[in-house]
Design a protein around this nucleic acid. Structure first.
Lengths: 180, 180
DNA sequence: ATAATTATACCTATCGATAGATAGACGCAG
DNA sequence: CTGCGTCTATCTATCGATAGGTATAATTAT
């Protein structure tokens, strides 16, 4: 992955945060880079290819962020904080949640990449819950991981919509209370 | 609101469920009705007008549904069931959640209509929680209403994405356990 | 009661903008 | 001199929106 391709992905992700998959175009990305749209087709033959590449990078980046040492003690709290940090930085919802909402109009390979992000996040949360809530049953862990992920995705989406980071903070605090 | 305008809204809502605000066009709706796109502009001068009208109808319909007598005993459980019913019927996420994900590219009046749906839902949930969990503090009620709404919106979005209604059911069951 | 007017609901045709995508040429670095 | 990265130029398709016309129904005025 060379620099240019990486720049293209950066801008595409930024644009997806603004309004989803159908809100970024090769022309707009090219314009921002000072090149032509045909040059982007050189790096990513189709929009679908760019969509998949972008989702893979997004997943990698997010999982990499979660590896920070700060998560050692209370990993669930750290995970919740990651959502709040993302909202604070970008003032927008999670790319995965945004794309998930467009499911019916996305190419299958992109859908697969989104599902992969979801799966990996829930797995990470399950591990975190096993570590932080040692007395929980395996069933409790699995159900909670799924539910917490849903709550955070919904929370960040509506916090971004209403331009109220406090909305997500309340959801986060509420979730933290549940794992004592 | 005459028949034709109502039919237009029906189809637009159906198409939004498939892929959001930018996935329905006047032409496609017209084609499905056997008329021309210009005729839809007669009923709704701009796409923004249609978007607002559609969100208002969606909000009304949903709140009307919640008035069913079945909600008397355990209104929170009934609210959760409403999301599962919607997923079972349409096999798609909530129109409000879908549009919320596109926030950055939606006309302000449409955003306002979405925010209105959100606000009314959370208020409904607060009332339901006061009724069902009589020993909760007002702060608990408010935080829980917000969080439950977020969890259900996130849950239905990802359940639709993964084509796994069980995902939403798990979130619902998890939420029900929290209000004993 | 009849004529004139207005409203309704659609039509055809077209606009400018934008989308994703492709073909073929150019310059430059190794 | 080969090939990577970019260019120009263009294609087809679709978008929201508008102008202007038509036929029918309802309303109003004479």
């Amino acid at each position: 992955m060379n620099d240019r391709a990486s720049q293209v992905i950066d801008i595409a992700i930024k644009m997806i945060r603004e309004g989803g998959y159908h809100s970024f175009s090769f022309r707009q990305i090219a314009a921002e880079l000072g090149i032509k749209s045909a040059s982007i087709h050189y790096h990513f033959p189709s929009k679908e290819d760019l969509g998949v590449a972008l989702m893979k990078r997004y997943t990698e980046t997010f999982l990499e962020y979660l590896k920070q040492p700060a998560n050692q003690k209370r990993p669930v709290d750290f995970y919740i904080q990651a959502f709040q940090d993302s909202l604070a930085t970008h003032e927008r919802a999670c790319v995965c949640g945004i794309l998930a909402a467009e499911a019916g109009r996305l190419p299958q390979p992109v859908l697969d990449a989104i599902a992969d992000f979801t799966e990996q996040n829930i797995e990470w949360l399950e591990k975190a819950l096993r570590q932080q809530c040692t007395d929980w049953s395996e069933e409790e862990v699995k159900e909670s991981a799924l539910s917490m992920f849903s709550a955070l995705e919904g929370g960040i989406t509506f916090a971004a919509l209403l331009e109220q980071p406090a909305h997500l903070k309340q959801v986060g605090d509420w979730l933290k209370k549940l794992c004592v």
